[in-house]
């Protein structure tokens, strides 16, 4: 009996160790993007894909940071008449490495309007009625010439944080354009 129990426990141990080998990896189809799995408690699930890290060329005053690379993939069991909104927030400043005292300010414009630091702006939407995923590319980081020229030398970074949520009801398109009609 004890021998059988030991054998079963060993077998269960080996099976448990095998689970980690099946961890999700970045596939070629998401090259240049980062897959973020967001599982909502219960049935609905989807995969949020966000843009890859990027570098802004020196003295560039306006840069699109999303460029259609924010997607909501593999939606499953999404309730009827609901919307998945993928949003981003920014901090408003680049910082020089670990030296947080040295900063370079910037603005974020989305759909022609300025977005304050910490305020959410929708970067992608999925509608359950049309099963359509709309990605946006009018979200730009704006750095003035004076900010570029006034900053100390070095490499600056800023985090852009993405999140997604399921909301009931069919939201309007974030850019104000008419939504695609279901064929």
């Amino acid at each position: 009996m004890k021998k059988i129990l030991s054998f079963l426990l060993t077998l269960a141990l080996l099976c448990g160790l095998g689970v980690t080998a099946f961890a999700e990896e970045d596939t070629p189809s998401t090259k240049g993007k980062q897959a973020v799995k967001a599982t909502v408690t219960g049935d609905p699930s989807w995969v949020l894909v966000i843009p890859a890290d990027q570098t802004i060329p020196y003295l560039t005053e306006e840069t699109d940071i999303v460029h259609d690379d924010c997607e909501i993939n593999n939606p499953k069991h999404i309730p009827a008449q609901s919307t998945i909104n993928a949003s981003l927030v920014h901090t408003g400043v680049f910082t020089l490495g670990a030296d947080t005292s040295k900063t370079l300010p910037f603005k974020l414009n989305a759909f022609g309007k300025e977005v304050a630091a910490g305020e959410k702006v929708i970067a992608s939407q999925y509608w359950s009625d049309t099963h359509d995923n709309q990605c946006y590319n009018e979200i730009n980081i704006v750095i003035s010439r004076s900010a570029w020229e006034g900053a100390d030398g070095g490499v600056y970074t800023t985090p852009v944080t993405y999140s997604s949520e399921l909301v009931s009801g069919i939201d309007d398109a974030a850019d104000g354009a008419p939504r695609p009609v279901e064929p």
Binding site: E24, Q34, D53, T55, I65, L104, Y156, T158, V160, Y162
Partner: peptide, 13 residues
């Protein structure tokens, strides 16, 4: 999984 996109820039030293 990562949820942060890092945007960087370089200024001549």
């Amino acid at each position: 999984p990562p949820q942060v996109q890092t945007v960087s820039l370089g200024i001549p030293c």
